[in-house]
Design a protein around this nucleic acid. Structure first.
Lengths: 117, 117, 117, 117
DNA sequence: GTGGTCTAGACCACT
DNA sequence: GTGGTCTAGACCACC
């Protein structure tokens, strides 16, 4: 896994997002045990507390749950994961689309730009 | 002009971006004098210091320049503005595209989603 | 305000509860500005981070909200406060009642005990 | 027997309390031999170490005593059990009462709420 | 070794 | 001076 952070947003929020992506893309499978907080923190080059904060945030959305002294697990509810994916895709696309519209770009010109990538 | 800020990024950076958009979209025309920092700050509902910081940032990219005691102006170099627009569009599109790819979406499926918006 | 903590529950949870009580009892009034995190922490004899955690917890229930760099405020929605009070009273009473029933006490005997207090 | 634990207090303390209740309610009779630590742990869905700790705690109050290599027994002193019950009821009631008073509830309104349960 | 909590102390963006 | 974030390092209950 590759970790990199931009300096203009809180690290723990970027962690939340990147972990979410890994869950969505099945790098972490439903029901799978996550590495320990300490290990994940070290891997990401981040303080354990920061990683903890990110994981608690994920727990608040029920995408991850923790069993004390045993470990943290990805939800087994694949439906919930799918739903999260759709929400994220939806949110990101609309944000992107609005920004492009702010530049006076039409839907067609946006499509064209993507075509060339 | 509508101003709104998300809480997870520095406000001055969001200002930089939104002002850029207005320059690109010719809400602010090339060579035009900008309102005073104080006025712009008030209009945006932001502390003058914050607006000041955003404008300094814009000056660093030569898209805005200031004449002492007279005021701040949009560059008259339309070429530079056009270039900035392309850079911004380019950057945003590639970022968006990468994020969508991280979700395992193909170019075609992205196109479809945009189609439906 | 008096602060005291029992050692068998997380301090931040006890803070949440005690602050809630003060809001419910109008020690803190709707719309009122709370003292700064640092001040509240010092007053409670607790690390600022711990107090912060408690306050974030309260924010998650919308009973408190924060304006960055300005301060934290009690919600102005008195309805929400009332609702919180009822929930707390309800929860505590039912828990208490169940425990007493576990001791084979009837409703009448519980009433009697309370009578004597 | 039903076991369930809330996550915000140490499990062994919750065990102490629940076992006490069973002694008080004569689910475990005076002088009766308790099941083995291992069995009790399994029944409660808890690690044997945790159950062990709870039982040691109970021994410290003389409500339970152990005969080496034979097992653990409930005290035969029914007076002591009765006393423990009274203490527990008393403690819980006063705590509950204080909490309700903190909400500005009068004795009468508390009585009413209990009435409706 | 695991998650959870807590402290002490620091820096940042913003008012 | 305010809320927010982050680090470093510690202790606890539990497995």
């Amino acid at each position: 896994m590759k970790w990199s952070f931009s300096s203009d947003r809180a690290i723990y929020l970027q962690l939340v997002e990147q972990i979410s992506v890994h869950i969505i893309c099945s790098t972490y499978l439903p029901g799978e045990k996550l590495p320990s907080v300490r290990d994940m923190a070290q891997e990401a080059g981040v303080n354990p507390n920061t990683m903890q904060k990110a994981l608690v945030e994920l727990e608040n959305t029920d995408i991850v749950f923790s069993k004390k002294t045993i470990g943290r697990f990805i939800t087994e509810d694949t439906q919930k994961i799918k739903q999260m994916k759709e929400e994220l895709v939806n949110k990101k696309t609309t944000v992107f689309f609005k920004e492009m519209q702010a530049f006076n770009l039409t839907k067609e010109s946006i499509q064209k730009i993507i075509e060339t990538l």
